[in-house]
Each structure stands twice: as C-alpha cells, then as structure tokens.
Nucleic acid binder design. Structure first.
Lengths: 137, 137
DNA sequence: TTTGTAAATAGGAATGATTACGATTCTGAG
DNA sequence: CTCAGAATCGTAATCATTCCTATTTACAAA
C-alpha cells in the first residue's frame, strides 16, 4: 500500500485526511520497515512542534484497524510498517534497522490440517536477525 | 521441564532455591500454558501476602535467562510458560485460556536457504485462536 | 549447630510506553 | 460561507515493568 491508496481508503471509510495524517503515511511509505511510535514522533516534531501523543497513538491505532499499517512487538515496543496488501507472506525483520525482507514460505495449510478441531484466528511467522548491510556496521 | 528439573538446574548454576522460587515453578508446572506476571502475583499472594513485584519480575527474568521459562508477547503483556526442552517445535496458543498445543511443523530450513546472506538469530511461529474446549464456552 | 556472607526479598518510588480527557481547532459536506 | 462533527492539543493518568536501599534468608564452611 502507498500513501495515496491509504488516503483513498481513509476517505471511503469517512475519516478526514488531515495534514498530519498524510505526513504519517508518507513517513511510513518512505522508511520501508518497522518503526516505533517514538520514531514517528521524532520525525513529525520537525514539522509540527509539540504534536500530541494522542494524535500519534490514535492514528497509529486507526491505521492498524483499517489495515493501512501492520504491527509487531519487538523488545517491549510496538512497531509499525505499511501493510503489504498484494499477497500473503511473512517477514525477515532486521533487529538493527527495522527493514524487512519478504518471505514467501508459509506452512499454514499444513498446520491447519493438523489442527482441524481448533478455531484458528491468526498466526505470526517472523524471522529476526541482521540484514546484510547491518552485519558490517 | 518440570519443577524438580528446574530446581536442579538452578542449583547447578549457583542460584538459591527459595520457597518462593519453588512455588513459582510449581505454579507454571500446574497451569500448563502461558500466564502473565499478574496471574502469577495473584496466585502467590494467597501464600505470600505482600510479595514484592521485584521478586516476581526478577525471577521471571531469571527463569527466562536460564531456559526454565519461555516467553511470548500477547496484546502488550509478556506471557510465560514452562519451557519444552525435548525438541524444537512451535505452539498453537488459545487466546482464551492460554493453553498451548505443540506444532511439529517448522519451515526454517527452507527459509534459511532463501536468506543465505542474512544473519538469522531467532524466529517466531505462533498460531492463535480458540482451543476445542473454549469454542463452546 | 552456629556463623558469615553473598544472594534474595520487601516496600515502594521511578520509568517508559501508551491511553484518557476536557478544551480548542480544523475539515469538508451542504 | 457555515457549522457540526471530527481531529488535535496539552497534559494528566494508567499500566506493566524496572530500579533502589534496607533488611532478611539460604547455605557453605567451620
């Protein structure tokens, strides 16, 4: 998903497209990886001095709800990234820079067969480590 | 792992086996599933009125360090369970009761081949939903 | 069994991320 | 242009977790 698709989606759902909301989207589009609320605040304060925590967290939550952002938990902090809507896949996540690499492998079909009497709602498959460029830094 | 194996391990590493430490272990042995620090506090306060947060968290952390407990993050809270040491596997986790079911499937060999230039440190594969008995409650 | 000491705990304050809320400002439909 | 509802501000509150110092305890060695 990119910024304009996300704004489109917001408007369709009846949410207003404010300047801050757009800037949050362009931020996540530009960084291409997982970022924390703190990262986002730091970025937005350059433009909007004294922006409220409320605005940050409310919008992060909203974007997660409507599927614009996806989220994961890394050492006690929530991290967010633009949602990849094109197809089902998982991610390698670099612990250093937060960038991700898509993994096409998903064993859920096999898992579902072995859990036939369980009601499966969700699953998480993530690989953590250092990406090639962070290995040398 | 069970309580006596865990106590053995503690002593081998030079840690003291206090009454509270033993009770934490028997608690996790008896519940057989993921529990939060809060759950544990609630249980221990029946025996040890006014037990300190410090004691709880310090020991949870210690047990994770030495491999007695394993940990996962469910909606913003750390959850702990007795470590299954016998072989590598993953878990279905019931969102309602916290109980788990082992999943033997793990696609990491395949993933490693596709990430040859990445330094893989860890991975997480978890399935969430409702177990058979919680579906009817 | 007693003792010495390093480890463990109590009690509560501090921290850090996140959420809540009344007052104010802004967006966008009409 | 107007105006109602949505969004934001500024800050306090909350919640899980960590930190700190004084006190207590486990257990190795005498």
């Amino acid at each position: 998903m990119n910024t304009s698709e996300a704004i489109e989606l917001l408007k369709n759902k009846g949410f207003k497209a404010t300047g801050k909301r757009k800037d949050i989207l362009t931020y996540f589009e530009s960084v291409d990886g997982y970022r924390t609320a703190k990262d986002l605040i730091q970025h937005l304060e350059e433009t909007y001095e004294g922006i409220s925590f409320d605005t940050i967290y409310r919008n992060l939550h909203l974007y997660s709800e409507v599927g614009i952002l996806e989220t994961t938990e890394l050492n006690g902090e929530k991290h967010f990234r633009m949602n990849c809507t094109h197809h089902h896949h998982h991610h390698f996540i670099c612990k250093d820079c937060g960038k991700t690499k898509e993994i096409e492998i998903c064993p859920m079909e096999e898992v579902k067969r072995t859990l036939s009497n369980y009601e499966i709602e969700d699953h998480k498959f993530e690989i953590y480590g250092l990406c090639p460029s962070c290995q040398h830094a």
